[in-house]
Design a protein around this nucleic acid. Sequence first.
RNA 1: GGGGACGUGGUCUAGGCUGGACUAGGACACCGGAUUGUCACUCCGGAGACCGCGGGUUCAAAUCCCGUCGUCCCCGCCA
Length: 569
Amino acid sequence: MRRDGCGELRREAAGRKVVLAGWVHRVRNLGGVTFVDLRDASGIVQLVLRNGAHLAHEDVVRVTGTVCPREAPNPSLPTGEIEIEVAEIEVLSRAKPLPLPVADEGSPSEETRLRYRYLDLRKPRLQRNLRLRHRAALAIRNYLDKQGFVEVETPLLTRSTPEGARDFLVPSRLARGSFYALPQSPQLFKQILVTSGVERYFQIVRCFRDEDLRADRQPEFTQLDLEMAFLEDPEELFPLLEGLVAHVFREAIGIEIDLPLPRLPYAEALARYGSDKPDLRFGMEIVDVIDLFPKQSVLAVLQDKIGVARALPVPGGAAKSRSQLAKLAEAAEGQGLDLLAWVKLSEGISSSLGKHVSAEILTAIAARAGAEQGDLVLVAVGEGGVVETALGDLRLRLARDLGLIPRDRWSLVWVVDFPLFKEGEGHLDSEHHPFTSPRSEDLPLLERDPLKVRAKCYDLVVNGVELASGSIRIHRRELQERIFRILGIGGEEAEQRFGFFLRALDYGAPPHGGIAFGLDRWVMMMAGEPSIREVIAFPKTTTGACPLTDAPAPVDEGQLRELGLRLEP
RNA sequence: GGGGACGUGGUCUAGGCUGGACUAGGACACCGGAUUGUCACUCCGGAGACCGCGGGUUCAAAUCCCGUCGUCCCCGCCA
């Protein structure tokens, strides 16, 4: 007889003979009758046993019985209107006393959860997350398939890619002394694939970076990687990506995303929100107030230091006490800000600048920031760049603090026109990666003023989290080599590290571009989880360990010898 | 590499500041008993912890100090 799903039985099934199998969720032994909540992947149903069997939590059983309507239905259970009169019960597997409760909501320590992951995963929260992740992946594949994309796998045993993180290395037995690197992303492979005539490529792919872990960072993580041929402008890609994003939000969690998404130039993001990944679920826009101060200001602090002065409105922030504000100022000034002043709008206007600046100026600052009675305005003075990011950090901290971030809102935005380069230690680094195309109109600046060159590069920012990042790539060898030179990668080094790729550009490479989404982060956000560990079946701890398998683990001498490796004491 | 929080029976936790009646308390789980309509069943009884580990201070340490290990969060690092 076919097995039914515990959670699927309803009133209509009354009278049917069924076979069920699952885990013993809870037992209520009343002596002459025992009630058992039986759980399988579909849900929970109540069994009625008339001749008692000794059952423990998480025992696995199979029962045969009849679906009966219940005299006293349980409205908190989807199957609450029926129960199963058990005729036969068979224990398929006994469970020892549990190291963590499965039928309880409480959360044991992370280490216990991971060591007994197979128990933790039985709980509804993680079951729900696994299924959400599956639905998201399925929606991605369906959508991209309809758009003519082909999923192609790329090697995991490969060579170092230039993403800037530390590589995980795999020693080669056949080529002693040489190592594979696990990919930080399939960047060059996907570019080679579009060059190979796969005009629309995608892959849901594991990536590896040997860096310290965070709540949203694991040493192995999953990207939705995609690339398209015959693109020269980000705008040619955005509609498709927006369609994808909207589709996934709809299919996975039933959220409708308004399209098209706004575009925000990098410089504007920094100026208005103090971040290249602004959270737009709330306002609190930063405004420039430098012109409001008199040219020959009497304000000594401002007189010689003044570079940039910007103001951040804090709705309801007037309730902050002087000492709280002093603490804020102290912390901000410790981070390189010259001055963090405040203007309070409660019972008139007051300010830490009160002695130095006229009431007219204070009022003008408040007005420019759009502050009203009960609000606070923070004014930051210092070096350009530092001021914006400091206010950006404060904007986030205070908004969280004051509960100004709506939980149910989704803000999606393209941040575009990133600079191509950033300053590294004594040389230039790529802001994105070395294969990013500069904007055509900025090409003349490449050698002359490289930091001014904008890239055909874009991030998708969701609720202040960088969810995806991509670019239009360089498809001409000359330009690629020019960029390498500016980055300080000489001809010889370029040939050695990327020769295989440069050669691919020699034989007819179409213009192309793409993007990569952090799938774990995406699912984490849709699941409303605080960490990507909650959406990964078998994640690692902050030290990169897996308590379930005890990886990483030492290997025996023989394995090392075969690889030609010896450990330093 | 740096900063912070936490670590008490199987699980979650109280106690810790202010060391002594802590012989370490509770809840859940576990074991035994009672119980024919429960649904976080209930009731009675029981077992289970040298308070992560090592050292120090003290007449006395779960409690204070140092080190170490583990977990988590953050900075650096990392798209």
